[in-house]
Simulated assay, not measured.
Amino acid sequence: MCYYDQTRWICQYWKWGNFRQQCNKEHRTGETCGLKLIYETETVGEQCKVCDAINKKQRRLRKMMDDVSRWQREGGRRATIEKTQADINDLELQINELWRGHVERVNSISY
């Protein structure tokens, strides 16, 4: 039950910060007991890096989908459309994985 700072963003994503106080269960200097408790929470008034990455990938995904729609209307770019659709599928998987990790982190701590 050693105490650590915590950083929390407006999207509720969080990370552990610096070690602040040793609990009475661990008597060796420089060692911690392994159980982390929050000493103080710093709230950051912006989105976390994971949300920024998700937003970036979503913008890229929208652009790719718009490109595919335009190419289908124009016709004649079958190979390019197929390649871009494969890239869209990969990008959707990446976005879903980032969201899964984000939700998992947000739900892993309760007050």
Rank of each mutant, 00 (worst) to 15 (best):
1 M>A: 10
3 Y>V: 01
4 Y>I: 06
4 Y>P: 11
6 Q>I: 14
8 R>G: 05
9 W>P: 01
10 I>Q: 07
10 I>L: 15
11 C>A: 09
13 Y>A: 09
17 G>C: 08
17 G>R: 03
17 G>L: 13
18 N>H: 08
19 F>S: 01
20 R>A: 11
20 R>S: 12
23 C>R: 11
24 N>P: 06
25 K>L: 03
28 R>M: 01
28 R>P: 01
28 R>F: 02
30 G>N: 02
33 C>V: 04
35 L>D: 04
36 K>W: 01
37 L>W: 02
37 L>R: 06
38 I>H: 02
39 Y>F: 10
40 E>T: 08
41 T>A: 03
41 T>Y: 00
42 E>T: 08
43 T>Q: 05
44 V>Y: 00
44 V>M: 05
44 V>S: 02
45 G>H: 06
45 G>V: 04
48 C>Q: 04
52 D>I: 10
54 I>S: 06
56 K>F: 10
56 K>N: 15
58 Q>C: 04
58 Q>V: 14
60 R>P: 00
60 R>F: 13
60 R>E: 14
62 R>K: 15
63 K>V: 10
64 M>I: 02
67 D>A: 10
68 V>G: 00
68 V>R: 01
68 V>E: 01
70 R>E: 12
71 W>Q: 05
71 W>K: 03
72 Q>K: 14
72 Q>S: 08
72 Q>D: 12
72 Q>N: 10
75 G>C: 10
77 R>W: 03
79 A>H: 05
79 A>E: 14
82 E>L: 13
82 E>T: 11
83 K>W: 10
83 K>A: 13
84 T>W: 08
85 Q>T: 08
88 I>D: 08
88 I>Y: 04
92 E>M: 14
92 E>L: 10
96 N>C: 05
97 E>I: 07
97 E>P: 07
101 G>C: 04
103 V>M: 12
104 E>Q: 13
104 E>D: 13
107 N>W: 01
107 N>C: 14
108 S>K: 06
108 S>L: 07
108 S>N: 08
111 Y>N: 11
